[in-house]
Design a protein around this nucleic acid. Sequence first.
DNA 1: TTAGGGTTAG
Length: 854
Amino acid sequence: MMFVSKLHIFNTKTRMFISKQMLTKRTVSLISIPFSRIPFCTNASSSSVMEDSKQIVDTLISIFPKRPQNEEQNQQLKDLGLMITANIVENALKGFKNWKIAQEFFYWASKQNNYVHNCYTYNAMAYMLVHARQNDALRNLAIEVVNSRCFMSPGALGFFVRCLGSQGLVNEANFLFDEVKRLNLCTPNVYSYNCLLEAISKSGDVCLIESRLNEMMGFNWVLDKYALTPLLYCYCQAGEFVKAIDVFNRMDDSGWVDSYIFSILVVSFSKRGEVDKAYELIEKMENQKSYGCLTEKTCCVLIHGFVKEGRVDRALQLLDKMHRLGYNADISIYDVLIDELCSIKQFEKALLLFWEMIELGIQPDMKILTKLVSCVPEDDDIIPLLKSWKGDLTNKNRTLLFNSVLKGLIGRSSIDKAYELLRAALADGFQDDNERTKIIGNGKIVVPDTTSFETIISGLCQANKLDLALDLFRDMDHIGCKRSVLLYNNIIDCLSHSDRVSYCYTLLNEMKNSGFQPTEFTHNSIFGYLCRHEDVEGAMNMLRAMRTQGHKPWIKYYTLLVRKLCKHRRAIEACNFISAMAHEGFLPDIVAHTIALDGLFMIGEPEKALKLFRDLCSSGYCPDVVAYNVIIKGLCKEKRLLESHDLLNEMLNKGLVPSVVTYNLLIDGWCKYGDIDKATKCLSKMFEEKREPNVISYSTLIDGFCDSGRPVEALNLWVEMKEKGCLPNRIAYMALINGLCKCRKLDEAILYLGEMEMKDMIPDPFIYVAIIDTSLSHSDPVLALNVLKKMVQTKTFPDPNDKNHGILKYSVMVLYKDPRTSSDVKNLIDKGGLPTHFCASAEGNATDIVHQVI
DNA sequence: TTAGGGTTAG
C-alpha cells in the first residue's frame, strides 16, 4: 500500500487580475452546468494507487453501513482506518446512499489517526447534505470547515458556497466566504465570487449583491456575465425594472445574453403583470436575430404567465410564434388557453384551438373536451366535439361527457331539455334515438352520477323550479345515487330564498343524520333568511349553532339585519343584537356599528349613540371616517355644531383624513343652523385642505344662501361651481330653482327650469308646485296654469302624503276660481288630465283647504 | 357554491 500525502498544498497566491477577454473565453458556464456534475476534485494519481484506493472505497461502502457485526469486521474497519486518505474518504462519501451513514462515516474518518479532512471531503459531505435537505447539518458543517482551518481552493470554496446557496442559507454562505478570507485559508477568485453572488441572489438582497460587486471591482476585476446574472435576477425579483433593463442591455451589448438570462427578465416581466413589456422584449430579441434566446420552455412558462395575467391575446400571439419557431406546444398549453378562452366567452377561438390540436396530432383529454362541450354556445358544435373523442369510452368517461352535455344545456338556458335528458337516462339509460344520447351511450347505458344531479338541481334552483329540484333530490335514493353536501346546500339556500325555512331545518337535520357535516354555507343560508326577516331570536340561535362548528356568520347578512332593524326604527334592538353577537364571540365590525349609530340618531337617541361611540373607542375599536361622519351628521341634526367641530378635530388628531362627506355634512349643519358664513368657511377650508368640493357641497350651500334670503350669492356660487368644472346635476338644479322660489325670484326660477328641461332632466313634482305657488303669489295665474299643464303632460304629481300635495290642491282651486284660468282648468279636469282628488276639491271651499294644508 | 356592508345635497 502506497502512502499518499493527506494534505493538499495550495498556492495561496491565486489572486490575479483577469482581463475581460480572459473571462469571457475561459470562464466555464456556471449556470448551464447542472450542479451535480461539477467535479469536487481534480486530483489525479497513478493508476495503481487508484486501483488500491478503489478497493478500499468499495470495502468501506460495503461494510460501514452494516456496522461491524463481529470481531473480524471490526478489525477490518480498524485496519482500513489506518489506510484512508482524503481522496478515499471523498469517494466513499459519494458512494453512500444514505446521508446519515455518510455523516457517521465522515465523523468516524476524522477520528482516525493521521487523518485530516480536506476541502474536497467537506464538499462531498456538503453535497450529500444538500441532496438530503439537511440544512441544520449543512449549517454546522460550514462552521466546522472554518474551525478546522482547512485550506480551500477558490473552486472548492465556490462549491461549498453554492451548496449553501442552493438551500437558501445565504447568511451562512457569506459567513463562510468572509471567514476563510479572513483566516487566509483561501484567496477567492472571480469564480468563488460568482458562486457567492449566485447564492446571494437566492435571497433577492439587492444591497448585498451590489456591495459584493463593488468588492470585486475593487480588485479591478471586470464583471462577467456570471457576475451580472445574479444582479439581474435580484433587480427583477425586487421589481426594479429600470435597473434590470440597464444590466440586461449591458449584457446584451457584450453579446452575453443567452436563453437563461433572457428568461430571467422576460419571465419576471410576465410575473409582474408587465405582459406587453415581456412581449416587446421577445420581439426585440427576434429582430436582433437572437433566436436562441426564446426557448420552448420559456414560451411555455410565458404562455401560462400571460394567461394568468388575463392576457390571452398575447398568449395566443406567442403560441403562433412557437409554431413558427418549430416548437411544440404541449397539451397543458392548449388546456390553459382553451380554459381561459371559454371563461372569457371567446368560444370560437377556443374551438379553433381545439381543432388545431387534433390537426397537430395532440389528442385532447377529457378535461378539455368536457370543458368545451359544457360551454360552447351553439348546439351544432356539440356533436362534432363528442365525435372527436378517440380515447376509451369507459363508463366513467361516458358519464363525464353526459354531465358536460347537461351543463351545456343549462348554460344555454335549456333547463327543461337538460332535465328531460337526465330523466330519460334514469328511465332507460338511453334507448331513444336522439343522436346526442346515442353518441354518449354508444349503445351502452349512461349511468348518471352525483354530479349529474348536482348540475340539474342547481339549474332547477336557479330557474326557480324548486319543486322539480326537490323531486329529483328525493329520487336519488331510489336509484341509489349518493347525495352530497353541495346538493344539500344548494337546496337549502334555494328554500331559504323561497321563504320555506322550516323545510330548511328539516334538511339540515337530515343531512346531519346522513353523515354530512353542514358547512358555513349551509348555516349562513338559513342565517341569511333569518336576517332578511328581522328574526333576531332565530338569528341568535343560528349563531350559537354556528359557533359550535367554528363557522362564521357572513358580514353581509348580519349587517343586513342591523340595517333593516334601524330602518324600521328598531335601533335599540339592533344594538342589543350587536351586543349579543359580541357575547357569542362574533364581534361585529365597524360597519355594523356605524349603521346602529345612525339608527340611534334617527330615533332621536343622540346620547345613546354617543355612548356607543365612546364605548367603541375605549374598547380598542378604531372608528373610521364614515363612523365619524355619522356622528357628525347626527350632532348637526341636533344643532350641536360645536360638538361636531370637536369631533372633526378629534379625527384630525387621530390622523384620520376628513372626507368630502365630512365637510358637506358640516356645511349642511351650519346652513340649517342659520349660520351661512360658517358654512362658507367650511367650503374655504376644503380648498385649503385640497379636498375638492363636489356638486353636493355647492348645492347644499346654494340652498343655504337661498334659505338666508341671499339669492345673489347663491347664483354667484352657481357660476363659480360651473367655472370650477363641477357640473350641476338634477338635484343641484332643483335646489337652485326651489331656492329661488323661496326668495320669490320667479323669473330666474323659470329660466333655470327651462335650462334643466333643455338638458332632459325631469324635475320632481315639488319643483312645479313651488313655481305654481310662487306664480300665484306673484298674481300670475297664467304662468301657474302653464306649469300645471306641464305637470299634466308629464303626469308628475306629488304623493298624497307629501305636503306639496295639499299646496297643489289649493293652487288648483285658486286657478279654478280665477276667471283668467278657470275654463282651462275645467278643460284639464274634463279631459281627465288631473287626478280625481285634485278635481273634487277644485270647487270646494278655499278656507277648508287652507286648513287642510296648514 | 360563498364577498366588502355603513355616511352627504332638493
